[in-house]
Amino acid sequence: MNHSVFAKLIISLSALCLAVPAASAQTLTGYDVMKKADEVDTGTTGSYTATMTLLSKNGSTRVREVVCRSRDFGGVTKSVIVFRTPKDVAGVGYLTWDYDEKDGVKKDSDNWLYMPAMKKVRRISGSDSGGNFMGTDFTYDDMGDRGLTKDTFTLLGEESAGGTGCYKVECRAKDTTEKNPRRILWIRKDNFVMQKGEFYDKQNNLQRELICSGITLIDGIWTTSVMTMKNIVTGHSTVIEMKDVHYNQNVDDSIFTVASVERGAVK
């Protein structure tokens, strides 16, 4: 299990799933579109339960469920994520302090992991940006929590996806050794929420495809309810469903501390 990737995944998941209309109709560049998508309002606090269903090519399924709480402290977003299932990782908790990009530089997040079987909190690396997490088909990079300085963006045009008008943006990583150096994203024109994504490998072959659905307003914030990532090569896919989503509610600051994670305050 790659814990640090997961911690980042959830942070990125929040940023990706939640968006508000942020632009008027005008001529935009690829960078403009992605900047607006990156600046979407995610609320001061957020809480949700995410169910990740892993589907293999032969039809077998595995289910992971996590509960998440997050709060934007201004310059740093703190999140705590706790596993409910499967049972062998139930109670495993992650605390992440994710820092905003500043002067074109994004500082590595601070991450702590609590494993009930080990009875202690462990500091974990905050820079792992590759690899799948928990067997899902999602990675940290897939979810876009990478700032805007690591890619160059090209607006390929406008195209309908999921029955909605979208900007089609090509993202090319400046570091060509990355797992997916080329991505094509469909960003909705009305609210700058991602509708679809394609992820290409180093040989420029389509590797994975992301489909977002159930995009609805919750507490005044656009929220993606279902994300399906399919690995074209292996036939494996992952469906993430968001439940019990709430924003801007009172969340106790003290739960975003290592001591709280160690106590198992979030269940």
Partner: peptide
């Protein structure tokens, strides 16, 4: 780790901040 250790019968007081 839990299988390799024995619990102690103790009273613990804690004070924690951010």
């Amino acid at each position: 780790y839990s299988e390799s250790r024995l619990g102690v019968d103790a009273l613990k007081l804690n004070l924690s901040g951010t």
